[in-house]
Amino acid sequence: MKAIYPGSFDPITLGHLDLIERSSNLFKSVIVLVAVNSEKQYLFSLAERIKLIKNSIQHLRNVEVDSFSGLTVNYAKQHNAKTIIRGLRAVSDFERELQMAQINHSLKPDIETLFLATASEYSFLSSSVVKEVARFGGAVEHLVPLSVAKALREHYQSLLS
């Protein structure tokens, strides 16, 4: 069975990576689906986000990366995926994620949403927090894959030049 793990991944964190690894053990195939939203401002371009994810998942043979603009359930249907993976860090995530799952179910009842609780060591972690720490020169190597930490450091150093 195939599953999709959608998100903006700007940038991918160790929390995301944990969910991807765990999903790869549950499903025959997992697609990390990178969001394309022209109304949102991203730190990294779509190509950069895809590259950073691919660098981070090289060890996972049944995981691929793709991008899509539109409804995730439409992508899932087009790619014969029956499950959308969503991570929950805290109770505050649940309401928004439940609403999205219910909307998706109303659109495509044959596609299920699976909620995975984030590992406790990553429950505080978000891409926004990582960017904030990196922007002010804080260490992020314990929050993101090393290639992402390097990309963040280079991005913020280039702004100072």
Rank of each mutant, 00 (worst) to 15 (best):
M1T: 14
K2A: 01
A3W: 09
Y5N: 04
P6D: 00
P6V: 02
P6W: 01
G7L: 02
G7Q: 01
S8G: 11
S8H: 03
S8E: 03
D10S: 09
I12V: 15
G15V: 07
H16E: 02
D18Y: 08
L19S: 07
E21A: 10
E21S: 13
E21M: 13
S23K: 05
S24F: 06
S24W: 03
F27L: 06
K28N: 15
S29A: 04
V32C: 04
V32P: 10
L33R: 02
V36G: 00
K40S: 08
Y42G: 03
L43H: 08
L46W: 09
L46T: 08
A47D: 15
R49Q: 05
R49C: 06
R49P: 11
K51E: 15
L52E: 08
I53T: 08
S56A: 11
I57A: 05
L60V: 09
L60N: 07
E64M: 02
D66G: 05
S67W: 08
S69I: 14
S69W: 13
L71Y: 06
T72I: 11
Y75G: 03
A76Q: 04
K77F: 12
Q78L: 14
N80K: 13
I85P: 07
I85R: 00
R86A: 00
R86Y: 03
G87F: 04
R89K: 01
V91F: 14
S92W: 09
E97M: 06
E97C: 04
Q102D: 10
Q102E: 14
I103K: 01
N104P: 08
H105F: 12
H105T: 14
I111E: 00
I111L: 01
E112D: 11
F115E: 01
L116S: 08
A117F: 15
T118W: 04
A119Q: 15
E121M: 10
E121F: 06
S123K: 14
F124R: 01
L125D: 04
L125C: 02
S126D: 07
S127A: 12
S127T: 06
V129C: 00
K131Q: 07
A134Q: 07
R135N: 15
F136W: 11
F136G: 03
G137R: 06
G137T: 12
E141S: 12
L143W: 05
L143N: 05
L146K: 15
S147E: 11
A149N: 09
A151H: 09
L152D: 07
L152N: 06
L152T: 10
H155F: 15
S158Y: 14
L159G: 12
L159M: 14
S161M: 06
